Computed example of a mutant assay.
Amino acid sequence: MTEFLQTPLGILVLTLVQALLLLVPLLIGVAYLTYAERKVLGAMQLRRGPNVVGPFGLFQPFADAIKMLMKETVIPTGANRLLFLMAPMLTFTLAMIAWAVIPVNDGWAIADINVGILYLFAISSLGVYGIIIAGWASNSKYAFLGALRSAAQMVSYEVSMGFIMVTVLICVGSLNLNDIVNAQKTVWFCIPLFPMFIMFFISTLAETNRSPFDLPEGESEIVAGFFVEYSAMSFALFFLGEYANMILMSAMTTILFLGGWLAPFGIEPFTWLPGPLWFIIKVVAVLFVFLWVRATFPRYRYDQLMRLGWKVFLPGSLLYLVLVAGVLVAMGWLPHAA
């Protein structure tokens, strides 16, 4: 068996098994995140949320999935059929393949590469293409305007997210996600880098087009934005991609600032819980804040969104990066890259 796993075919089989072990729970998590969002919003707005399909409405995600599968995919007249159908597939695929480098425990990653953070940044940057293609291929002015809005928003906040990631990287001296988590055994980075932690979380809200930055879905002016012409499973793929990106951004926040799978500050009563469970607890906590923000804050105006990104977050993250680098050099704490 060991010899077979060392052959090219064995490596392929092992990789496929690892991918399934990761993607199946992830897809179930995405399905139940939609349920959790409706329940949390219901509780915060003093109503019940889904409660008919199954006990406590637990089968609602499966009912929604069956409904989407049974509907007809309508392609608008004049739309580019190939690109119209490719765009949701691209968005969903990118949301899935980004998980290849995410470690849920020490060494538990499908691809434990030394440039994991660059891989994640590259994949998140490619997400813009799916949105632009969807807006253009729909042959609709509203869809195209929504796509341009969304692309500008994502590009704007990726700049400050890049500087925030670099701040974490110079504290660690490595681009490996495993090393970033292990560097937080003494103290989580959310404490010394607290302003960066807040800016990163708000940037993830903008990057995933979530409230209060859900400008692409401005119902009053452009209806549902770039996926206004989509229906059935093509719409569902965009929907799943958005929620998978929420989980991905929560995992990135956990790895960069909340100590990943590490127990809080190594406190003894908490260390008996396994690492993957701590990772899941932290990701769920960040996701809850995603939902809490949606229930609490009104939508930003577009000029306010851009002003926050370019005039507040960009100079703020750059200033804090220089400050952190200066402190590390002055104290002689600058780590050497492995």
Results as ranks from 00 to 15, higher is better:
residue 143 A to E: 02
residue 85 L to C: 09
residue 47 R to H: 01
residue 176 N to T: 03
residue 328 L to G: 09
residue 46 L to Y: 14
residue 202 I to K: 01
residue 131 I to S: 00
residue 305 L to F: 10
residue 156 S to F: 08
residue 142 Y to S: 09
residue 324 V to A: 01
residue 21 L to P: 00
residue 52 V to R: 15
residue 6 Q to F: 11
residue 137 A to G: 06
residue 205 L to H: 12
residue 300 Y to V: 11
residue 251 A to R: 05
residue 1 M to A: 15
residue 104 V to L: 14
residue 31 A to Y: 04
residue 137 A to I: 08
residue 190 C to W: 15
residue 271 T to P: 03
residue 176 N to V: 05
residue 99 W to A: 06
residue 13 V to E: 07
residue 312 V to E: 07
residue 257 F to Q: 08
residue 120 L to A: 04
residue 42 G to V: 03
residue 165 M to G: 09
residue 38 R to G: 01
residue 187 V to K: 04
residue 233 M to F: 12
residue 273 L to T: 14
residue 125 S to H: 03
residue 322 V to M: 14
residue 113 I to W: 05
residue 204 T to N: 05
residue 72 E to C: 06
residue 233 M to Q: 10
residue 126 L to R: 01
residue 189 F to P: 08
residue 30 V to S: 12
residue 334 L to K: 10
residue 154 M to W: 02
residue 126 L to A: 04
residue 134 A to V: 08
residue 61 P to L: 10
residue 221 E to Y: 02
residue 197 F to A: 13
residue 183 A to H: 12
residue 118 L to M: 13
residue 172 V to F: 05
residue 14 L to G: 14
residue 176 N to D: 11
residue 125 S to I: 02
residue 239 F to M: 14
residue 241 G to T: 03
residue 98 A to Y: 04
residue 176 N to Y: 05
residue 296 T to Y: 09
residue 88 P to K: 09
residue 20 L to W: 14
residue 192 P to D: 11
residue 212 P to G: 11
residue 319 L to A: 14
residue 258 L to F: 15
residue 98 A to Q: 10
residue 73 T to K: 08
residue 49 G to M: 06
residue 319 L to T: 13
residue 160 S to C: 11
residue 233 M to R: 04
residue 44 M to R: 12
residue 248 L to A: 08
residue 313 F to H: 05
residue 25 P to G: 12
residue 48 R to C: 04
residue 146 G to R: 06
residue 77 T to K: 15
residue 180 I to W: 05
residue 40 V to M: 11
residue 254 T to M: 09
residue 31 A to N: 13
residue 206 A to N: 07
residue 227 F to Y: 15
residue 125 S to W: 01
residue 108 W to Y: 11
residue 331 M to W: 04
residue 140 S to F: 01
residue 285 A to I: 13
residue 134 A to N: 01
residue 74 V to M: 11
residue 307 R to A: 04
residue 177 L to Y: 02
residue 303 D to V: 00
residue 11 I to P: 02
residue 290 F to E: 05
residue 336 H to V: 14
residue 12 L to G: 15
residue 41 L to T: 05
residue 311 K to Q: 07
residue 88 P to R: 12
residue 136 W to Q: 06
residue 169 L to R: 00
residue 196 M to P: 00
residue 238 F to G: 10
residue 94 L to V: 08
residue 310 W to A: 03
residue 332 G to A: 08
residue 329 V to P: 01
residue 221 E to N: 00
residue 147 A to E: 08
residue 330 A to I: 10
residue 238 F to R: 04
residue 331 M to C: 01
residue 130 G to T: 04
residue 288 F to M: 15
residue 21 L to Q: 14
residue 167 T to C: 02
residue 91 T to K: 00
residue 216 P to Q: 05
residue 138 S to Q: 03
residue 286 V to M: 03
residue 223 V to P: 05
residue 132 I to W: 14
residue 51 N to K: 13
residue 100 A to D: 02
residue 16 L to E: 11
residue 303 D to M: 00
residue 242 E to L: 10
residue 251 A to T: 03
residue 112 D to R: 09
residue 161 M to K: 13
residue 128 V to M: 05
residue 266 G to D: 04
residue 100 A to R: 04
residue 331 M to E: 12
residue 243 Y to I: 08
residue 315 P to H: 02
residue 108 W to E: 10
residue 280 I to V: 15
residue 283 V to D: 10
